[in-house]
Amino acid sequence: MTLHGLIFYLLASVILASTGMAITRRNLVHAVLYLVFSFIGSALLFCLFGAPFLALLQVIIYAGAIMVVFLFIVMMVKPDLSEGTVLPLRQLLPMVLFGFMYAVVGVLVAVTDPAGRAVLETAVAKPTEFGHYVFARHYLAVEIISLILLIGLMGALHLGREKVPKEPEEPS
């Protein structure tokens, strides 16, 4: 096992463990924290694969913005989750199903290539190349996604806008 592989397995186990902790915690803040660890771990994984740009975007967007908003909401509304099971049956079934599928794929991959060679070449994706790749080849997808995001933003704005109450008509 190379150093590269060792780091990969270490990181992977950390990610898996923290994700597992995240979905089984009763305390939502702890769950959010474990998820943040998991995101930072996957960012390190990106770094390992030679995409520091993606890694840092992962940290900025997922760990730094989205999870903060999650945390914010959890702190604000303080949901009470002390009752009920952590994983009800209707969530457990799809989980087992997908877990089984991933396990099958993993086993198949491992069996077909027992030497464990890396399928992908490690390549350093510098910001410039990344930008060229995204904006030159996939500009349409980028535009569509940004439009969808804009629509989402406008929808949120519309839903969240304070409704001006009409003047109540004077009873005659």
Binding site: V29, L33, V36, P52, F53, L56, L57, V59, I60, A63, G64, A65, V68, L71, F72, M75, K126, P127
Partner: peptide, 25 residues
Amino acid sequence: DLNVGLLYVLALSSLSVYGVALGGW
């Protein structure tokens, strides 16, 4: 000398929210 040094700065400053929010919580 990271080639994404500026993003590194932004990422870390976005993580410092956790100290404040979690300390308060």
